[in-house]
Write a protein that binds this DNA or RNA. Structure first.
Lengths: 207, 207, 207, 207
DNA sequence: AGATAACCGAGACGGTACGTCATGTCTTTAC
DNA sequence: GTAAAGACATGACGTACCGTCTCGGTTATCT
């Protein structure tokens, strides 16, 4: 039994020991994740249920429970299965531009249906330490890492103030995006740029 | 997903027509809201159910359904019934200090049990326009109003840059606080102050 | 909530208090018992399940659980609902004839489909004190009462020995019938008569 | 309902072919039967399951299924594996005494834990012809054989009536014991003796 | 005073979903 | 060929809530 949320069911990690026993059905696994994501996208976590995923995917409920310990675990896994490889991209080397691009891509990623799903998922992670961890690892941390790189390179170049509190800057712009998503306000490019401008103003060398 | 959340059923607003018929039981109404909030505080919206509220308050489930159209409606109503008159306070007149105090009081308000409830409630407002409206009116708007006053007075005094995008500044710090709450990170005074510093840095007159 | 197995849900007992609340649906109640008995008759208790009863009767599973605490309780109730008014009949006054008639009617009652159901039900009552009580009250006790009357009248008339151990006689013939039923041997009139003869031989005045 | 119960898989019968392939594990076989009986004794057939037997014996479920076609088959096999060599004993030659001793030993055998298991097993043999056959062969027939010998010797000696319907007498006392077992009443020596007395009264020469 | 409203409580009803357990089948590796 | 391991579809278990629906009683105001 997988320890908590995840189920690593990777395979890409080379030699998985492959002991005796009927091998896990990859198709069933995929079908579950796809059905789960589809349901999430259509009705949010509100209408998400293991029962429904089972019916839709054609996979027995018990099989689902074998691999995902709870409804939340499945929801978050199916979400990150789709969302993971989103916010990234080439760097220009100009800190301001790179930051702006990062904010834009984050906003773009969350503006679509995936945004509603993300909001739904995090929202329901209240008190579920495991889900929060997963969210941090798969969403927050990569985002923080990229932002940090950009901001640090800005400091190195002398564009940004040397005493910049990078962690707080990230808190500010990520929080702004996410809160707006939750609150149901529109997320578009103009807003993203305005936010970038405001945040970047605080990053520059003090006169 | 329920959309009409509210139920105005107040009565304090003067002339409520007051036709024939048994008048609404104020005690039952109060008992429901109190029980609802208590449940919310103890177990979050996860363990919140009309059944439970009914049992705890001693009010029949049907009576609850008569006045609140859904679980979400009751949850949010019971929340704002307690939370409304929170973030406020006297002003010193020094923009930096006032801003810092505002952030501190917001963080303090959300750090306690009420914070978990707030997170819970907003979280579950996904897609429920009515709840989002209520949240904006009772929580966001007052906060924005106070923040705006402080920031504008700072601009007037020349402490803050004249071209400050006030709305974005507010987005940033409120979002930061709320996101941190959602994500389960600690909310304390130090963090509040660090955030204030970072935000205020962006507000000052450019060199 | 009904204490254990039964649920008296009678109604014939005059005034049933009739407190507040939606009145119980007699039709649902009847549908459940009928469906339950039909399933019992078709496949024995082996294929009996609350799920199935629910589907067949068109009554929600939860409603069934409201009234019957377990599968066994429902099974036995539905059985006695049909079987109760069976073994009885007028007396001739001649003890031998009456006894013979009683055995015949018992055998006849258990030879049909009801017999298989009875066997099934008692069989599965292993360890279930409540079911055993019900079975004793609704099946064994009435049978014992009638047998006792017949045997006592035979003693009074001088046909049967005065020191007859009535309880053991009843144990013997009832057990014989039931065991034969369980073991899958044929139950017919000839066997019933042969059994009666053997038992009656032991009842007569000693030479 | 399963019909083929047996599975001959013994092997002690001489030449078992012994072709290619991994030889059958005697230890696994024994472990299964022992675990099965232990479970039967502890919780009756109610708590008996292939799953549990597998876990307890450390034998794979699939292996069990290879050798026993169903839960009932395994239950009855494990039961008779223990119970078979029970009711027997030396004869005194005095028919009354021998009969009394037989009844006592039958009651004693069924009064202990084995009795509950026996009841459980037969009970669940409803409709399973194969199990009924096994039960008859291993339990009823030996008992009938011994009883018949005793009763016939009694007839030969002139103690018992010559027209005694032996089969019915056996039906009566065996049935009485078994029914009492099923019904959950106490089985003890006094009751056994009272039953013997009553039955023997019917066996004596008519005055 | 009596009718008429609107309310409250109790409780039953058909449902959906939960998470667990057992069934019997199938598929793979290891002896 | 047999054993062990384990995945699978199926289906039942008993529980918690959902939202709806009757009922019997209880206050009020409006004739």
């Amino acid at each position: 039994m997988p320890e908590s949320t995840g189920a690593d069911h990777d395979g890409q990690g080379a030699e998985r020991r492959r002991g005796a026993g009927r091998p896990r059905s990859q198709s069933a696994h995929r079908a579950v994740l796809e059905a789960a994501y589809a349901i999430l996208e259509e009705g949010g976590i509100e209408h998400f249920s293991i029962d429904r995923v089972g019916r839709r995917s054609g996979v027995a409920r018990t099989t689902i429970y074998r691999w995902w310990p709870s409804k939340a675990a499945l929801a978050i896994e199916s979400f990150f299965n789709q969302f993971e490889p989103q916010v990234a991209g080439p760097r220009s080397g100009v800190p301001d531009d790179d930051f702006r691009a990062l904010v834009r891509s984050l906003v773009a990623a969350l503006a679509g249906p995936a945004g509603r799903v993300a909001a739904s998922v995090v929202a329901h992670a209240q008190g579920d330490k495991e889900t929060q961890r997963r969210f941090r690892e798969n969403f927050s941390d990569p985002l923080r890492k990229q932002s940090t790189e950009i901001l640090e390179s800005g400091i190195a170049r002398g564009t940004f103030r040397p005493d910049l509190d990078i962690a707080r800057v990230i808190d500010a712009f990520v929080g702004a995006v996410y809160f707006r998503l939750l609150i149901g306000s529109t997320l578009d490019r103009d807003w993203a740029d305005a936010l970038s401008t405001t945040v970047l103003d605080g990053c520059r060398r003090a006169g």
